[in-house]
């Protein structure tokens, strides 16, 4: 599904280059559930953002669904991730002004999905996530776990092939975290959605099919479970 070849990312400060990622090679297949681990500052988020095309590598070649991402223009790149990738954040990043329903609906608006179809899709996912009763509430009226649930529902609404989750359980207690992990596992198994998550929790990492350990901008180890 995606492939990174000799990907590097560095920041120059005062003439010196600080490498955040250093010649990383990574291939992820359709249907995988990858957990990325590593100490703080090791470049996990950077790697995830490059995969998600929110960030661009300083060097290297990147392919997504056989498209050479490093050769694409901004517009094409954003069209590519708009259609295929859903993002889940540690801080949920729901839009405060919008209700649960509207938050989930937003990606569809940006893809110009017809109103009737939008309604059906949102109703369907609210039902699946058991949050129909909460649809008119605003984010601040929800618990952290519920907010993350909405965040995931929003990431899934446009039926992405790939979910990128940066420490999705980082702000949650362990019980809420478990529920989210179960959800990812179910999505991965039953719907065949590819999942790549960053996590600090050894336990949560075990939900996946592969664990990648990052250290100083390099892949230290890659363990298939």
């Amino acid at each position: 599904m995606l492939s990174l070849k000799q990907i590097s990312k560095y920041y120059s400060s005062g003439g010196a280059k600080t490498y955040v990622l250093n010649r990383v090679d990574l291939d992820v297949d359709q249907g995988e559930f990858v957990s990325i681990m590593g100490p703080s500052g090791s470049g996990k988020s950077t790697l995830l953002n490059i995969i998600g095309m929110l960030d661009q590598p300083s060097e290297g070649y990147q392919y997504f669904l056989n498209e050479p991402v490093h050769q694409l223009k901004d517009k094409q790149r954003s069209a590519l991730y708009k259609q295929n990738i859903g993002f889940v954040f540690q801080a949920y990043h729901l839009i405060d002004e919008l209700t649960v329903y509207e938050n989930i609906e937003t990606p569809l608006l940006y893809q110009d999905v017809k109103s009737a179809e939008r309604k059906a899709l949102v109703a369907d996912i609210l039902d699946r996530f058991n949050i129909v009763g909460k649809k008119d509430l605003f984010p601040e009226q929800l618990s952290g776990g519920q907010q993350q649930l909405v965040g995931i529902a929003r990431a899934l609404i446009s039926k992405p092939k790939l979910i990128l989750a940066d420490e999705p359980t980082g702000n949650l207690n362990s019980k809420q975290g478990e529920e989210i992990m179960e959800l990812f596992k179910k999505l991965n198994k039953e719907d065949g959605v590819t999942v790549i998550q960053v996590t600090h929790s050894e336990k949560n990492a075990q939900y996946g099919s592969r664990i990648i350990n990052l250290l100083d901008g390099k892949i230290d180890s890659s363990i298939i479970l």
């Binding site: 929110l54 954003s78 991730y81 708009k82 993002f87 990043h93 729901l94 839009i95 405060d96 002004e97 937003t106 990606p107 940006y110 893809q111 929003r154 446009s158």
Partner: peptide, 16 residues
């Protein structure tokens, strides 16, 4: 700013 960022990630174009 955060709202703008989130919307962009969710697929909003600059025009929108």
């Amino acid at each position: 700013a955060r709202e703008v960022g989130v919307r962009k990630v969710l697929g909003a174009s600059r025009g929108q």
